[in-house]
């Protein structure tokens, strides 16, 4: 694993080009003047660079939407992890029938498309008087991230050898202590994966914000992108500029947190 792997290196370079193409299109289109964006062909370098689209995007209140999205994303991540990790711990260590049924129910949750249940969810949220609040987005998004979180975390937790549990139990540790001292640190790779996925679900999700919020002050970024979609056509360069601006915070967060992420991912058993 430590030697240079040439075929893999070439393959990953190819994949990099594949990944880069649409991103190139997005960035280049965002720099085109709005009226000429299709004429030269999508891939050509723009004849004139224009930051008008970015200026328009910012003018349309993007910063407010970014703040709302940030709150929703962080809250969703926290709620998902806080619920999923204890549940995964229980599933991995408790073999009773009730718990196994619980796992099957969560697996059933994987199969539920959000659109199928959006109307009942709307009715429930309205009855709970949570309509048009960030909580209205956080609760269902976290609930729908739970099945995935539990699948990934059980996968991650099961590889903790039983001896480690048993030795702590023999030392007199209760479940709470085992959770804090053993499970929490060792599940870090899984926690990070789940956190990223739940956070991105919340950042890019559009269905729950659409149906469960309304006012401009509760609006999140994906809905803010609408300002570029008009009744008879989309302002594509403007939209692309808004997309770049809205991906930047997550990108910066990732670049800054990458080292911590890598350290977390490398925290296995380190033998």
């Amino acid at each position: 694993m430590n030697r240079r792997n040439v075929p893999a290196g070439i393959a990953s370079a190819v994949w990099l080009i594949v990944v880069a193409f649409p991103i190139y299109v997005i960035v280049v289109t965002s720099l085109r003047p709005a009226d000429a964006y299709l004429s030269g062909g999508v891939l050509s370098l723009p004849r004139s660079l224009s930051l008008d689209n970015y200026e328009r995007a910012l003018r349309l209140g993007l910063s407010g939407f970014l703040a709302n999205s940030a709150v929703v994303a962080v809250a969703t991540m926290a709620l998902t992890l806080a619920c999923a990790l204890p549940a995964a711990y229980c599933i991995v260590r408790n073999r009773s029938r009730l718990v196994r049924t619980g796992l099957s129910l969560f697996l059933l949750g994987l199969a539920i498309p959000a659109q199928a249940v959006i109307v009942p969810v709307y009715l429930i949220i309205t009855r709970m008087h949570l309509y048009d609040s960030p909580t209205a987005i956080v609760l269902p998004t976290a609930a729908f991230s739970l099945p995935l979180a539990i699948v990934v975390l059980t996968s991650s937790l099961r590889d903790i050898p039983t001896e480690l549990y048993e030795s702590m139990q023999l030392d007199g540790a209760g479940n709470g202590l085992i959770f804090r001292r053993l499970v929490l640190p060792l599940s870090r790779p899984g926690l990070i994966t789940v956190g990223i996925v739940a956070g991105l679900n919340a950042w890019n999700g559009i269905l729950f914000p659409l149906v469960l919020t309304q006012s401009a002050r509760a609006r999140v970024v994906p809905l803010g992108l609408w300002n570029f979609q008009n009744e008879h056509g989309t302002d594509v360069p403007g939209l692309m500029a808004a997309v770049v601006l809205s991906a930047l915070p997550m990108l910066l967060l990732y670049l800054v947190g990458r080292r911590y992420l890598l350290r977390g991912l490398a925290a296995g058993f380190g033998r």
Partner: peptide
């Protein structure tokens, strides 16, 4: 005034 895009508007209104 609150604005929506075409398809989401119809869904939002219906709900």
């Amino acid at each position: 005034m609150t604005t929506y895009v075409n398809d989401p508007y119809k869904q939002k209104l219906q709900v």
